[in-house]
Amino acid sequence: SPISQSQFIPLGEILCLAISAMNSARKPVTQEALMEHLTTCFPGVPTPSQEILRHTLNTLVRERKIYPTPDGYFIVTP
């Protein structure tokens, strides 16, 4: 029987999409709110552990794709 394939999207890209959507909705993007958003909006995607989430967010900050503030994470705009 054929095996169904799913699209692979890197966690960093999913986080950027989620942060962008939450920023547009003016929702604060904390790590907890981000986990909740991922569970709700990406039900088929396994939720990352806190450690993996933190590591991926730090990587995105180093890559200058997002930036942290006391009010949460935001997408870097050119």
Rank of each mutant, 00 (worst) to 15 (best):
R54L: 12
S24C: 07
Y67W: 09
I52W: 11
A33D: 05
L15E: 01
F74S: 15
H37P: 00
C41L: 06
I66V: 10
S4Q: 11
S1V: 02
K27H: 06
N58W: 07
S20F: 01
F42W: 07
I14N: 02
L53I: 12
S24T: 15
P48V: 03
I75R: 09
I75W: 09
S6I: 05
Y67C: 14
M22G: 03
E36G: 11
T69A: 11
L53E: 00
V29S: 08
T69G: 12
T77G: 09
T40H: 03
F74P: 01
S24Q: 13
Y73A: 07
T40P: 01
R54V: 11
Q50N: 07
R26G: 12
F8N: 11
L57W: 03
T30H: 10
E32S: 10
P2R: 13
E32Y: 06
L15D: 01
Y67E: 13
Q5D: 11
A33L: 08
E13Q: 13
T56N: 05
V29M: 02
G44W: 06
Y73D: 05
P43K: 14
I75T: 11
S6K: 05
K27E: 09
I52T: 13
P10W: 15
T77P: 12
T59N: 07
G72R: 02
N58F: 04
I3V: 12
I9R: 14
M35K: 02
T77W: 06
E36Y: 05
V29N: 00
Y73F: 08
L57C: 04
V76L: 14
V29E: 00
S4D: 15
E36T: 12
L34K: 00
A21W: 03
Q31C: 15
F74R: 14
Y73Q: 08
R64N: 09
F74N: 02
Q50S: 10
S24E: 13
M35N: 03
T30Y: 05
H55E: 14
A21V: 04
P2N: 15
E32D: 07
M22L: 13
T30S: 12
L60F: 02
M22E: 01
E63K: 13
E36Q: 14
H55P: 03
E32N: 05
L11Y: 12
T77S: 13
T30V: 10
E32P: 10
S4P: 13
T39Y: 13
Q7I: 08
R64S: 11
T30E: 05
A18W: 01
E51R: 03
P28S: 07
D71Q: 09
L17D: 08
S6D: 14
E51M: 04
P46C: 08
T39N: 14
A25L: 11
V76T: 10
Q5W: 02
L60G: 01
